[in-house]
Design a protein around this nucleic acid. Structure first.
Lengths: 339, 339
DNA sequence: ATGAAAGCGCTAACAG
DNA sequence: CTGTTAGCGCTTTCAT
């Protein structure tokens, strides 16, 4: 492992304890000795082995991040912010992409435990707490982002997806007179999309519109082409639709494409709303009206929560709820059947 | 640090050596004992501390990834692929975003060295090898992606940015009859954009077009709005331009927006070509003609190179060069002044 | 077929 | 003000 503290001690003609103390400024060392040690460190290109230190200090300064996929713009931005904030506090991030696979997620947790991370930040895929329970039982702090696992208490920073969707749908109904609104749901249920759907249902109800199950369809996957297919299915089945909500920007972008392929004009024939507020949705044409998740705020809250918890692990779990907000852009307009 | 090998040994009534051997199958242990040990591991929820193991084995199974920013779609995809491939080989990734800052990059290298990573993968920002030289001197394998630091020999997987740009510009000239082609360059020079520019220059030369320095401008930053500004500057100064090449997709997207804001129609008035092949450029409108970097192939090559090097570190440096390819989409068409 | 014990590089308690 | 040393959790050599 190259140069060790011993080599430095020998070169500086001091004990290894002194070297350690010079590095961490953990007790007074005379100026001359300090200089000698620093010189030796410099000359030998010594980098203290933090992993060994962690052996005694019970702290690795490593945090695990479990996330579906960082190549998603939203998750990428989020990871980047988290990494930056934690790096400033001397923590490093081991990022594990789960690709929405429970088995990969479990494997990731296992590795993180063997790497003895000080804490875990997760956007969990699973809806069973099993593996996360193990983390918790080991008293390793966990922070969940935008997901709940029912019956599992953790610190979490949530997005008010109910309100986000409710507001978007209400806007379509009240401001733009839509009454036939299609809905593209997530392939598999998790807490966030269930909340979204509740927002859709409640907004319809509150405006006296009966729910039509035919207007709701699940995307087959998490990607663009799934959006294309979903919208086609929806529009063929329900030609009366004047607006469509996609639970996720990429799906909504696919929906725009699918609708265009079917000969519809966006937004004149069909209004489309997305969810997440990914940057690229603003540069597309038409730009996408979408519900924006406050990423920076999210990252800040997550890190704060975790850092606090790393200091005192004993207090009650905290849940923070952040409001998304509707970004009105070009992909929506007044309903074509508005009277 | 919770449950240790000792606890397992005690519970299974064997020595810690035996526990270790059961875990790693590193010597024969009788069936009964093996079962007892595994049962104890299970019941105690024991996760071996890999960091300690690395103390003796001189191997941490951790790789450092230094990258400008993973929230960039290209880098995000790249990171994700690298993470997945290495994870399958039991390696973890510590990702450090440098935000194109040399000082952050240096700080990142320092941390990676204290975390005793087995290897480093980097898209370097600096053009001075100083810190990377330290890594190399410690005989830690490094792989560079798409960047060269002159006078610094490392394994690298490069993109043939010269050819990528040359082909794109040649296409504009030969197929689409453009003769007045603007060029938006990177804010600061690095190897890849220098190669790109050389491709631009040579393509013009080879087609008998004289280089006009006024047609070349540098983006002020790496972002969308810098593209907007750059194109405006370019078009005001040179109304004769019929096409513009942006060294980076986001800049090119900004250029489209800027040109539209000035009243140009894309592609009829101005053709615009980007570089990178980010996914979102295909769903925008008009979709962007761009030079696509082969991300998956890139990730595979990088990981292969690194994994090989982790086995035998003594051989000569390897450089792999991958060809990008032109994706022809909607943002280019025949020059408006074509005769 | 299994155990005892040295030692990896470092921190921190103790000693002087 | 500085040095000596035990020990963190584990792997591996040596011993039986």
């Amino acid at each position: 492992m190259g140069v060790t503290i011993k080599d430095v001690a020998k070169k500086a003609k001091v004990s290894i304890a002194t070297v350690s103390h010079v590095i961490h400024k953990t007790r007074y060392v005379s100026k001359e000795v300090t200089e000698r040690v620093n010189k030796a460190i410099e000359e030998l290109n010594y980098y203290p082995n933090l992993l060994v230190g962690s052996l005694r200090k019970k702290k690795t300064f490593t945090i695990g991040l479990i996330i579906p996929n960082i190549s998603n713009e939203t998750f990428g931005k989020l990871s980047e912010n988290i990494q930056r904030i934690l790096f400033e506090k001397n923590y490093n991030l081991i990022i594990c992409n789960t690709a929405n696979s429970v088995s990969i997620e479990n494997a990731a947790i296992k590795t993180l435990l063997t790497k003895k991370v000080d804490g875990v930040i997760a956007i969990p895929t699973t809806t069973e707490p099993t593996k996360f329970l193990e983390i918790k039982n080991m008293e390793i702090p966990i922070v969940f982002i935008d997901r709940i696992i029912s019956g599992f208490e953790v610190d979490s920073v949530l997005i008010n997806n109910y309100k986000g969707t409710y507001d978007a749908i209400s806007y379509l109904i009240k401001d733009l007179k839509h009454r036939h609104i299609g809905y593209i749901d997530r392939p598999i249920d998790h807490s966030h999309n269930i909340e979204q759907k509740r927002g859709y249902i409640e907004a319809l109800k509150d405006n006296g519109i009966t729910i039509n199950e035919d207007f709701i369809v699940r995307a087959e996957r998490f990607d663009y082409s799934a959006g294309v297919n979903a919208v086609k299915l929806l529009l063929k089945r329900n030609p009366e639709l004047t607006a469509i909500f996609g639970y996720y920007d990429i799906i909504a972008m696919g929906a725009i494409r699918g609708a265009i392929e079917m000969g519809y004009k966006i937004p004149n024939d069909i209004s489309i709303i997305g969810y997440d507020g990914m940057p690229f949705t603003s540069v597309s044409n038409p730009s996408l009206t979408t519900v924006k998740i406050p990423i920076t705020k999210l990252a800040n809250n997550v890190c704060n929560l975790l850092l606090k918890r790393l200091e005192k692990n004993k207090e009650k779990n905290v849940t923070i709820k952040l409001n998304p907000n509707l970004l009105i852009r070009e992909s929506v307009t007044i309903a074509r059947d508005a009277s």
